[in-house]
Design a protein around this nucleic acid. Structure first.
Lengths: 126, 126
DNA sequence: CGGGATCCTGCACGATACTG
DNA sequence: CAGTATCGTGCAGGATCCCG
């Protein structure tokens, strides 16, 4: 092993594919939505309530994309006004651990990140 | 435990903070850059080479942000033209497992996502 | 080589209104 | 309730030029 030594899986070659997926799954709202749906199935406006910062349009878009990617299932319940339930799919639930780990990391290291930011801002301009 | 039962960490209340961090760390290029820097320290144009799709500006921005967040360290080597090395910090390396897991997930489930997409596109329009 | 400064563009996202 | 349609906009991010 001297050159081009693939120490681990060489992500180098599949950067594009990873980016594609990162775009789809790690975008602005998907993780948050998936996290909520991992807990339990939710209705549209229910999701809006638990993620107050998402707009209706963005939520629609996000849910559509997640559905297209096979991460969530859209279940139409034909009652009078009409009800729609979103539930996580088998594929989607394979992400649950990862999401928890991610949010766990955030909770654990956010403070340190905050301090790093203060230090940086302090040293640089000021 | 009946109402407001926090089955797990209640992400519900800290959506905003998670979003903030997701914005900082899981953005378009950070994960890719961090991944490369986990392998070994890299120079600016070296990073451009291993992540060919990133523009100079985006790479600069990403590195600055990562530096600000304490995830990477910028080391200036005062040679003739000047050399700058970016290396992952202690804080940054706490993400390594997560990144690997994430890319591992992508590698494992991308195909299935692709099939789901085809099915979706197939059924819906056309 | 490692960027900074500018210009320009798309599209991500929010706000608002309307529908079955 | 669960959306679709339309409009407006910010800003992420590429292209280009320049500099120490």
């Amino acid at each position: 092993m001297d050159e081009t030594t693939p120490t681990q899986v060489d992500h180098s070659q599949i950067v594009g594919e990873h980016r594609e997926l990162l775009d789809q799954v790690l975008d602005k709202w998907s993780l948050l939505v998936l996290d909520k749906l991992c807990e339990s199935p939710r209705r549209f406006n229910e999701l809006r309530r638990v993620i107050p910062t998402v707009s209706q349009k963005s939520l629609t878009t996000t849910l559509r994309r997640l559905e297209r990617n096979g991460m969530v299932e859209r279940v139409v319940i034909s009652t009078r006004p009409v009800a729609v339930e979103y539930r996580i799919s088998a594929l989607g639930s394979t992400l649950q651990e990862l999401i928890d780990a991610l949010f766990g990391w955030a909770t654990a290291y956010m403070p340190e990140v905050g301090r790093a930011r203060e230090r940086f801002d302090d040293e640089h301009d000021a």
